[in-house]
Design a protein around this nucleic acid. Sequence first.
DNA 1: GCCAACGTTGGC
DNA 2: GCCAACGTTGGC
Length: 157
Amino acid sequence: MNYWLMKSEPDDVSVDDALAAPKHTVPWTGVRNYQARNFMRDQMRVGDGVLFYHSSCPEPGIVGIAKVASTAYPDPTQFEKKSPYYDAASKPEEPRWSLVDVQVVEKTRNFTLPEMREDPELAEMLVLKKGNRLSITPVDPKHWRHIVKKLGAKAAA
DNA sequence: GCCAACGTTGGC
DNA sequence: GCCAACGTTGGC
């Protein structure tokens, strides 16, 4: 079992939006970065733990515990001409972009970015490294445990 | 809105 | 394969 941190812009899909969706599950559309895609396509397994992170918003931070709810499949938005995620270079016979479904297990308080930075136990987290822009990063199990514990989250798997 | 940092593109 | 130019991310 692996652990991941996945960034979403709440103006696009917030943790509340995901909770409002059927089965508390949303397709993780719009990833257009090869490294992040490869994590989803090649390494994620159903049941992997996910830290649901809000970015590009007034209070960036971890706002929920989720899990990977599907194996990878082609991101349909790459073929939708009206979508901001449309990619004219991607062909249905050979899709370039993949996604997984993400199911929210539990909404938590906002464990904010400044709070994460203050926590010496989290200093090595990839998402806190200078210049990191990856929207999906692997999370060390010890960081996962620390965060889940600190949030008092029930999903301590 | 600014800008640092990084990824991608394309000419050579 | 190099690298300059450009685009994007995302915190502030």
